[in-house]
Amino acid sequence: MNWLIVNVISWLLFFFGAAFPILIVLRVIGLTGFMRITRFESFHTFYYRMNPSIKIMLGLVVTIVAAVTIWWIGAIMTAVILLTYFTLKDGKRKFITGFFLTMITIIGTTWAFAPYTPYTILQQAFHVTALTGIWAWPSYFTVMGYQPELTMQGLIYGFQISMRFTAVSLISLVLVMTSTPSQVLRALNKVGIPISITFSLVVAMRTIPRIFEYIDTSVKIQFMRGLGSTAPKIFRPFYMLKGAIYAIVPVIVFLVRGAKDTAISADTRAFRAYPKRTNMYPITIGSVDKSALAVMTLVMLITIVAVIMGLGRAIPYS
């Protein structure tokens, strides 16, 4: 194949892993979509009625199962958790956003592993000596740590690894979307985490949606001021990324200025007066929590059985 075509396609493939997820974020999810799935909205379905401590436990269980079992168990958990997004407030939109976030994770992770994973690992993982080459990179790509060729086994390997993250990220977002920061604070304090650490987490949960909003404003204004105005349209996602990087400093400075007010607001309302706090509505364990505990116990038992049966984390996955 023509040297120029090979180089052009190779560089397009190189950027695909970074640019495609960014494109999905910007064109499909949008920064408002991110805000939607990173903040609490009150509702009445089971996730919202669940004790936040149980939700944290659920997150831990999902993490453990995804980490120790074969990839398709992670995939099943991803599908199940994603389907439960329909039970959230404005469930359809959250499901769609969650679906695209999962796609981003899969593409990003696959692209982060597929071109770099040494052939010896792929040979061990898939019990083969010959790998199926899909695309031969120009020789100088090895400087970036690339293997000489992109292989089918590399892509599958990357996809399987992504299943370690997808379920965990989806269940973490469930915690954020269905619990208020102060509920999380209470739950974490109950397990003995110091109040100042949990408070930082609470403030972070409150701040994350704002960060998206502020970065969005800053990037749009940079575009208005001419960012990328002389470049072809195709490069706009990269300029958007550049704008977001430039926005980091003013957004942080802006947030830090506000953070002092937050600290004053907390400290002048007796925050840290005592090592513990009381609650207006004490946390109780309800029927939803008992059901969730039963499901978690069952999942853990299945995991133990699966690992004993050889469906554990070890390579090969098949």
């Binding site: 903040r39 609490f40 009150s42 208020t180 920061p181 102060s182 609470v202 403030v203 409150r206 506000g258 953070a259 007010d261 937050t262 004053i264 607001s265 907390a266 309302r269 007796a270 925050f271 840290r272 007066a273 005592y274 513990k276 706090r277 009381t278 609650n279 207006m280 509505y281 004490p282």
Partner: peptide, 29 residues
């Protein structure tokens, strides 16, 4: 009470924001 309520209010729910201080004082529910 500070100038910018957005930075002063740190909880998601109105009721829990109002309860934040008394909860810190470890008062009875």
């Amino acid at each position: 009470v500070l100038q910018n309520p957005e930075t002063q209010v740190m909880n998601y729910g109105v009721e829990e924001e109002v309860a934040f201080g008394p909860e810190n004082l470890c008062l009875a529910p």
